[in-house]
Amino acid sequence: MSREEKVSQRELFDKQMKEFEEFVESMKDSLGLPTFPDMKSGALQWYDQRWITTRFVISVEGIKEFFDKLIDGKFVTTKCRSCGELYFPPQKDCPKCRKSDMEWVELSREGELLTYTQINVKPYSFSHYDDYIVGIVRLPEGINVTAWIRADDPSKLRIGMKMRLEIVRRKPENYITYEWVPAEE
């Protein structure tokens, strides 16, 4: 079955919500109120007539080098110049020695799979994707990196297997990110 033919969880949910809202609208037309009996209990419910959509604006100024390098195909993070502590995700400040003097260092692109899962029931904002696999991989530097794993069946993966990091464009949002690719059978 091709990807296009599959109905995503988002399409299913949006369809259900549309039907539900049409039902409430019809109740409102006849009653003058957005009230309806709960399907299971019969208890009377009011359907909120005020709603918002929320998207956050997050500062990445303190770690912009990470994104600048990602565009160039490099995977970097911060290392404290004062105490040598390595951080991933990168951060501007070193709480260990309380200095904010970081250098940017390139990270290994290979590591070992620590653990993984496949997300079958998705959050709304991910519900347009097929089931995806998420894993945590340990790099030789001793730090761990969470990302999607490019694989279709979690039972084919195993803890300890070698993984390689690739910088990719996430579709359909079309932004640059990174993912793990199994580096062995």
Binding site: T115, Y116, V121, P123, Y132, V134, W148, I159
Partner: peptide
């Protein structure tokens, strides 16, 4: 970036524990 869910986070523990 990776759309983890609450069951997903605990699934990471389940996979590692069972292994």
């Amino acid at each position: 970036n990776f759309g983890l869910t609450f069951p997903g986070y605990y699934a990471l523990y389940a996979t590692a524990y069972m292994d």
